[in-house]
Lab assay of single mutants.
Amino acid sequence: TRVETATETAWISLVTALHLVLGLSAVLGLLLLRWQFPAHYRRLRHALW
């Protein structure tokens, strides 16, 4: 049971790290898009909202 718990903890930390990385890359990508294509971003936002 001790090994299982350790594996579970490792998986949880791995998944958390993955989610953090994905979230950060998504935010960075959005910022980059907004910085590179302001007109396109505004049009996209206008279409979405």
Rank of each mutant, 00 (worst) to 15 (best):
G23E: 06
A39N: 11
E8F: 03
R42W: 14
V3M: 07
Y41S: 11
T9Q: 10
H40C: 13
R42I: 06
H19E: 06
A10R: 06
T1A: 13
P38D: 15
S25V: 10
H19G: 07
T5S: 03
R42N: 09
L32I: 06
P38W: 01
L31M: 13
W35G: 15
S13H: 06
Y41H: 10
H46A: 00
R2K: 13
A26D: 06
A47S: 09
L31P: 03
W49R: 01
L18D: 05
V21A: 13
S25K: 06
G29I: 12
W11G: 03
L44F: 14
E4W: 12
F37W: 10
L44S: 07
L24D: 01
H40Q: 13
W11I: 09
L30M: 11
V21L: 13
L20H: 05
L30K: 02
A10N: 04
V3Q: 05
T5A: 06
A39K: 15
V21E: 05
R42H: 10
A6C: 09
W35Q: 15
E8T: 03
F37M: 09
L31K: 09
Q36T: 15
R45I: 01
L22S: 12
V27P: 01
V27D: 03
Y41R: 02
W35H: 15
G23Y: 07
L30I: 12
L48W: 08
L14D: 05
G29R: 05
A39S: 12
A47M: 08
A10H: 09
H19V: 01
A10V: 07
V15D: 01
I12Y: 07
A17L: 10
L30T: 08
I12A: 04
L44Y: 03
T16L: 05
L20C: 10
R34S: 08
L31R: 07
Y41M: 12
R43H: 00
A10Q: 11
A47G: 10
L24P: 07
L28T: 02
R2N: 10
L31V: 09
L33N: 09
V27F: 12
T1S: 11
F37K: 00
V27Y: 10
R2S: 12
E8Q: 02
E8P: 08
G29A: 14
A10Y: 07
V3K: 06
T5D: 04
Q36R: 15
L24T: 05
L24F: 10
E4N: 12
T9D: 00
W11N: 01
L33E: 10
T7S: 13
I12W: 07
T1G: 05
G23V: 08
R43K: 12
G23K: 06
R42E: 12
T16D: 00
L28R: 06
T9E: 09
L30P: 06
A26Q: 00
L20R: 02
T9K: 12
L22V: 14
S25Q: 06
W11L: 06
V27I: 14
Q36Y: 15
L28D: 02
R43T: 12
T1Q: 13
A47C: 15
H19Q: 02
W11C: 07
L33G: 09
R2G: 09
G23Q: 06
L32D: 04
H40G: 13
L24N: 02
L22W: 06
A17W: 06
Q36V: 15
R34H: 07
R34K: 15
L30C: 14
Y41N: 10
H46T: 02
V15Y: 03
F37S: 08
A39P: 14
L14W: 01
L48C: 09
